Every structure is written in structure tokens, then in C-alpha cells.
Simulated scan of single mutants.
Amino acid sequence: MLNALEVLTTVVVGLMVGVEFSVAFVINRILDALPEDSGQLGRAHGGRMLGAVMPFWYIGSLVLAAVWAAARWGDHGAGLVVAGAGLLVVSVVMSVLLLVPINNQSKQWTPENRPEDWKEQAHRWDRYHYARVAVLIAAFTLLVTALT
């Protein structure tokens, strides 16, 4: 049963890392290259869509990692799982404090109501997101390493 928890946690966190990496290095670059208002409209739609799913994914990943850490407390690799879970906490705090406030505004923007500095705000979100992706990759790496 514990092995299933470890595999499930690793898969859930790994998929989340993949999605967030894709947003950072593929999807947003594609959206930024679209003509006229298409990119901004795509970012707004993505903010609404992923903004509805990601809170559950982030918290779910953290809960799974915490349960894994508690179940393996004192065993080989438990410290790695605790450190990975700690980084998942950091990613949640980063999300709530830095990324969600920008996303909550930008997901409502249209070409008619967006602020003049919308591109600067989008690029600020991107910079915070790059940092969050690095934290998530580090957490995932620790969790995978704990399996060995």
C-alpha cells in the first residue's frame, strides 16, 4: 500500500511539474507570438481554466507528500520526502502571495478593459512562474530520489 502511495505521489507531482513547465516554456511563448489580441485572450482563458484546477492539484500533491513523509518517518529517504514536501509548501505560498493575485486580475482582461501595463504584469507573472517551476522541479527531484 505504501508503495502505491509513493508511486501515486510521484506521478501526481511529476504531471504537475510537466504542466507548469509547459506553461512556462511552451504555451506562454506560443501565446506571446500570436498576432494582435490573441495572446492576451489566450492567457486570460488559460488563467481561468488552470486557475480552477491548480489549487486542488497543488494542495493534493502537498497532502500526498505529507502522508508519504509521515508513513515513512524514520525510514531511509524520509528526509528527502520531508524536504520535497517543504518545497511544495514553498510553491503553494509563492502561488498564493505572488502569482494568484496577478492571475485573478488578468483572467478577467479583455482587449477593451485590460490595463495599459498588462504586458509588464504578464511578464512579472512569468518571472514568478519560472521561479515556482524551479521549486517544483527541485521538489519532484527529491521525491524521485527518495524512491531509490
Score class of each variant (00 low, 15 high):
Asp126Gln: 13
Leu31Thr: 00
Ala138Glu: 01
Glu20Val: 07
Ser38Ala: 15
Gly77Pro: 04
Ala122Phe: 02
Ser22Asp: 06
Glu112Phe: 04
His45Val: 14
Leu2Ser: 11
Val19Trp: 09
Ile27Ala: 14
Ala24Lys: 09
Ala134Met: 08
His123Gly: 01
Ala65Gln: 07
Ala66Glu: 04
Arg43Asp: 05
Pro111Glu: 11
Leu5Glu: 06
Lys119Glu: 08
Arg29Trp: 09
Ala24Pro: 00
Gly18Asp: 04
Arg124Gly: 00
Val26Lys: 02
Val135Met: 05
Trp118Val: 04
Ser22Cys: 12
Glu20Pro: 00
Gln40Asp: 05
Val7Leu: 12
Ala70Asn: 08
Leu41Ile: 12
Val11Lys: 00
Val63Thr: 15
Ser38Gln: 10
Ala71Arg: 15
Gly47Lys: 02
Lys107Trp: 05
Leu31Val: 01
Gly18Met: 02
Asp117Met: 07
Val53Tyr: 14
Trp73Asn: 12
Ser91Glu: 07
Gly79Asn: 04
Arg114Pro: 01
Leu136Trp: 03
Gly51Glu: 02
Trp68Pro: 00
His45Cys: 06
Met94Asp: 11
Glu120Met: 01
Gln108Trp: 07
Leu15Glu: 12
Gly84Trp: 03
Ala4Ser: 13
Leu2Ile: 10
Val81Ile: 12
Val90Thr: 12
Leu98Cys: 06
Trp109Tyr: 07
His129Ser: 01
Ser22Trp: 14
Ala33Ser: 15
Val100Gln: 04
Trp109Ile: 00
Val67Arg: 06
Val63Leu: 15
Glu20Thr: 05
Leu147Pro: 01
Pro35Met: 07
Gly86Thr: 06
Leu87Cys: 08
Met94His: 12
Leu41Lys: 14
Trp109Glu: 00
Leu87Gly: 03
Met49Tyr: 15
Phe25Cys: 05
Ile102Met: 10
Ala85Gly: 06
Thr9Asn: 12
Leu62Thr: 06
Arg114His: 10
Leu99Asn: 14
Met1Asp: 00
Gly51Ser: 11
Ala131Asp: 04
Ser61Phe: 05
Phe56Asn: 03
Trp57Phe: 11
Leu5Gly: 08
Tyr128Thr: 01
Ala138Asn: 04
Val90Ala: 12
Tyr58His: 14
Phe56Thr: 07
Gly79Trp: 06
Leu98Ser: 07
Phe140Gly: 05
Ser22Glu: 05
Leu147Ala: 14
His123Gln: 15
Val90Asn: 03
Val19Lys: 11
Leu5Arg: 09
Leu136Val: 05
Ala146Asn: 09
Thr9Trp: 09
Val100Tyr: 02
Leu34Gln: 13
Asn28Ser: 14
Val92Glu: 02
Val13Cys: 07
Asp117Lys: 05
Pro111Lys: 12
Leu136Gln: 10
Leu41Thr: 06
Leu50Cys: 00
Asp37Asn: 11
Tyr128Ala: 10
Met16Lys: 09
His129Val: 04
Met49Lys: 12
Ala70Tyr: 11
Thr141Trp: 08
Ala83His: 01
Ala52Arg: 15
Pro115Arg: 14
